[in-house]
Design a protein around this nucleic acid. Structure first.
Length: 579
DNA sequence: GCCGTTTTCGGCCCGACTGTTTTCAGTCG
């Protein structure tokens, strides 16, 4: 079973316990365990088989046993038992705004409601008002939510690149307003998560009312829900909810820290602080000893007050960053400026939109020292392939252009398909003449896990494969990863010395952060590549670096923070012509 | 149900808002 599937089972179990009226701490414990399982960079099934599932933070003896039962029998006995009492449709009912587990349970007990359809009927025929705690307003809110299309599914999330497009425009416009003192994007966008469900903007202002008024008039804003001196809630034309908060400048650090999250990070931070007699909220840090509350202008001061080193937003996911901050063991995260070249790009020779020269000049303008031209191989499958003879000519064209270009080195490369049997798309004799070889899967996505993993491991073992491109094949929010044993892929890459890519395309960000972290811990070197198909997407490198930062990576973990000559030496098969 | 530089038992973040209350529970972020 995949980590995601195991996590889902425990999320369901948490909801069932919650509807059954279990103590909230038990429900939270199951939810925390589900999160740890989902985010694990190694196979939890494998850990469980080895009796090590309880090494995950938040998984103890009881949950470890339940994981075992789930793997052995396909279900958790406690969940099966609860399902006898609690209809699964009730979980959807709890996702209607304003309805939670307590009220859903009440509706089940008093009206026999078991599904959204039942809820709709009861809201329409007036039975809802008869339930204790429900008045006319509550019933009306349910009717409105259902009419607005609430269907019991989780809120949709927008890809980070789309959210940032809007968020950066809003922040830029607000910063230009004369009343603005400080304006920062907070929330999941500031943590560079894969996707966002809303935007949070935190401001300090000399004239709050004027700044709020200006915000509601911005061209990106469609509807304004509520607004006042303290901020506004609005929705953009693209349907993204935006929360604007205005705070006093002297407590800007507290608010920014609070609204950057994540919720789990803040919860853990506060629990930790309580042990030191400190109570952290968005307004300040209250000190039991002095009885005073301390407000801070900067986040650095907030973290210092609770005895922690400053934690970068990308790390604030409660994945061990608090302990590392306490022990002074936070990594010095890689920065975008550390990147010295891009090792995966396309031109019009395959499916790119710009010529080799245009790509080279654009890369040089970004300050890169080198750019690998890696057009698709002979069986790419989408047309625009590069047959062997064409690739030979391309090597010559790269050499000729290098003669003309100053300030950047072009590398002759390929993004070769990994064929279903694990072989590559060109003969070794041709691959040997290339400076850089990316190998990726672009066909036969539906293979079983064993075959797909064998296929990948075979490519990793090929002496002339420098890096595996977008190793899991996921498309964020649209396509699950291939059925792949990522543990084995990482192990094979570590053993062979083959690099694994963090593909920086914002739709991919592949390797994902959890796997990239596990890969580096296993000794794998990472390459962060834009996979640009035009000059306009070289900037996507920032999403790859963000994923690397979320994976706790340093400059040293990433190949292309080095000059090209060092990258050549670092890979498993340095090419003779460079020696 | 988990966890341990106060604890192997007794804790387990903080505050705002809403609607229904007659002092607060439930929900949300």
């Amino acid at each position: 079973m995949r980590n995601g599937e195991i996590a889902e089972a425990f999320e369901e179990l948490a909801s069932l316990y919650e509807l059954d009226g279990a103590v909230v701490y038990r429900v939270v414990a199951y939810r925390n365990a589900a999160k740890a399982i989902r985010e694990s960079g190694v196979s939890v099934e494998e850990m469980a088989r080895q009796g090590r599932a309880d090494e995950l933070a938040g998984v103890g003896k009881t949950i470890a046993e339940k994981i075992g039962a789930l793997l052995d029998d396909g279900s958790i006995p406690a969940a099966d038992k609860l399902k006898g009492r609690i209809p699964s449709g009730l979980i959807e009912v709890t996702r209607i705004p304003g309805l939670g587990p307590k009220r859903a349970r009440l509706l089940h007990e008093q009206l026999g409601i078991e599904s959204l359809d039942d809820l709709r009927a009861a809201a329409e025929d007036g039975r809802l008002e008869g339930v204790q705690g429900f008045g006319a307003k509550a019933a009306e809110n349910v009717r409105a939510a259902l009419a607005a299309g609430a269907d019991g599914s989780d809120k949709p999330r927008l890809l980070l690149s789309k959210a940032l497009e809007v968020g950066e425009a809003l922040v830029g416009a607000l910063r230009e307003h004369p009343a603005a003192l400080r304006v920062e994007l907070a929330g999941s966008a500031r943590r560079w998560a894969d996707s966002c469900k809303d935007l949070d903007i935190v401001c300090a202002a000399s004239d709050p009312a004027a700044l709020v008024a200006a915000f509601t008039e911005l061209p990106e804003i469609d509807q304004v829900g509520s607004s006042g001196e303290a901020g506004a809630r609005a929705v953009t034309h693209s349907g993204l909810p935006v929360d604007l908060r205005i705070v006093p400048a002297e407590s800007f650090g507290n608010l920014l820290q609070h609204f950057t999250g994540s919720g789990k990070h803040n919860e853990a931070l506060r629990t930790d602080a309580v042990k030191r007699g400190l109570h952290v909220s968005e307004y300040g840090v209250a000190d039991d000893e002095s009885g005073e509350s301390h407000a801070f202008e900067t986040e650095e001061e907030v973290y210092a007050k609770v005895g922690l080193a400053y934690i970068e937003p990308e790390l604030r996911e409660n994945r061990g960053e608090l302990k590392a901050a306490r022990d002074g063991k936070l990594p010095e995260l890689i920065r975008l400026e550390d990147i010295r070249g891009d090792l995966h790009s396309h031109t019009t020779l395959s499916d790119g939109r710009n010529s080799m020269r245009e790509m080279a000049e654009a890369a040089r303008d970004r300050g890169y020292e080198y750019l690998a031209i890696t057009d698709h191989s002979a069986t790419h499958g989408f047309g625009d392939d590069v047959p062997p003879d064409e690739l030979r000519k391309q090597i010559e064209r790269v050499a000729a252009l290098n003669e003309e270009l100053d300030g950047i080195t072009l590398l002759a490369g390929t993004e070769t398909n990994i064929l279903p049997e694990g072989k590559l798309d060109y003969e070794d004799e041709l691959l040997e003449q290339l400076d850089w070889v990316v190998a990726s899967v672009h066909t036969s996505f539906q293979m079983g896990e064993q075959k797909m993993t064998d296929r990948m491991v075979a490519a990793i073992g090929h002496p002339l494969v420098d890096v595996i491109g977008h190793p899991t094949g996921r498309l964020i929010g649209r396509r699950e990863p291939y059925a792949l044993n990522v543990d084995r892929v990482i192990e094979a890459a570590a053993e062979a010395g083959t690099f694994l890519e963090i593909n920086a395309n914002p739709n991919r960000r592949d390797l994902p952060d959890n796997y990239a972290k596990a890969a580096v811990e296993a000794g794998v070197t990472i390459a962060i590549d834009s996979d640009s198909h035009g000059v306009d997407t070289l900037v996507n490198m920032r999403y790859g670096v963000a994923t690397a930062r979320r994976a706790w990576l340093t400059k040293a973990n990433v190949a292309n923070t080095r000059p090209w000559a060092e990258v050549d030496k670092l890979r498993k098969t340095p090419r003779k012509r460079y020696q």
